[in-house]
């Protein structure tokens, strides 16, 4: 697991979903390099679609 704390800028989301987002982001950074932005976004989007229903976007 990547060490460091995620800083949340703006949010309109349940606390549990925020936690899922930060956990998935750290997991994606373990799987992929920092420069592979598209792969990181793909991973987070697909996982959120699976966990919380379809229609999520990630940049």
């Amino acid at each position: 697991m990547l060490e460091g704390k995620a800083v949340i800028g703006e949010t309109d989301m349940l606390q549990t979903m925020q936690q899922d987002a930060t956990d998935l982001a750290s997991k994606a950074l373990d799987f992929f390099d920092v420069t592979e932005a598209i792969e990181i976004a793909r991973f987070i989007k697909k996982e959120f679609d699976r966990m919380h229903g379809p229609g999520w976007q990630c940049m």
Binding site: E36, A37, I38, E39, I40, A41, R42, I44, K45, K46, P54, G55, W56, Q57, C58, M59
Partner: peptide, 14 residues
């Protein structure tokens, strides 16, 4: 509609 503007960003959208 959604719009993202920047010089360096990655995205994966539906």
């Amino acid at each position: 509609w959604h719009c993202i503007v920047g010089t360096s960003f990655g995205s994966f959208v539906t």
